[in-house]
Amino acid sequence: TIEDAIKKLLKLAQKGQPYTFGDFTVTSEEEAKKLAKWLKKQL
């Protein structure tokens, strides 16, 4: 689910690992949080 993807994304971001989700490449926890907010709006 999208919720699971968001959780995984935040965990990876906390470890400092870049994470690619579709067109987004997230390289920081701050970016992960922005992406998570955006994804929730898409639901």
Rank of each mutant, 00 (worst) to 15 (best):
A13Q: 05
G22F: 13
L39T: 00
L35S: 01
E31G: 03
A5T: 09
L39W: 04
Q17I: 15
T1H: 06
T20Y: 04
L10P: 00
L43V: 06
K37W: 11
Q14A: 13
L10S: 02
K11Y: 14
F24H: 04
L35D: 00
A36P: 00
K33N: 09
F21I: 07
P18I: 11
A36W: 13
E3V: 14
P18S: 06
T27N: 07
Q42S: 04
G16P: 03
L9F: 07
Y19K: 01
K15P: 03
E29R: 08
L9K: 00
K11P: 02
A5L: 15
K15H: 11
P18R: 05
D4Q: 13
K40E: 12
L12N: 05
D4V: 02
I2C: 14
L10T: 01
G16L: 14
L10I: 10
W38I: 03
T25W: 11
F21P: 01
L35Q: 00
V26Y: 06
E29P: 12
W38M: 05
I2Y: 12
V26I: 11
K7D: 13
G16A: 06
I2D: 02
K15C: 15
G16N: 07
E3T: 10
L12S: 06
Q42M: 14
Q42L: 09
L43P: 02
E30L: 07
K15S: 12
T27V: 08
L43T: 02
D23F: 12
A36Q: 03
K37H: 11
F21W: 14
K34G: 03
P18Y: 10
F24C: 15
E29D: 05
T20C: 15
L9E: 00
S28N: 10
G16C: 11
T27W: 06
F21K: 00
D4H: 13
K34W: 12
K7F: 05
F21A: 02
K41T: 09
K15L: 13
T20L: 12
L39E: 00
K34Y: 06
L12I: 11
L9Q: 00
L43Y: 07
K33A: 10
L39G: 00
K34E: 10
G22N: 11
Y19R: 01
K41S: 10
E3F: 15
W38Q: 01
K7Y: 06
T25M: 09
K7Q: 07
T1M: 10
E3K: 12
I2W: 10
K37Y: 10
I6M: 03
K8C: 13
T27H: 05
F21M: 04
T20R: 02
A13F: 10
T20H: 05
A5I: 15
E3R: 12
W38K: 02
Q42D: 02
E30V: 08
G16W: 09
L10F: 05
K11L: 13
A5H: 11
K15G: 08
D4M: 07
K7W: 09
K15R: 09
K41R: 03
I6W: 05
E29G: 04
I2A: 08
T1C: 05
F24R: 01
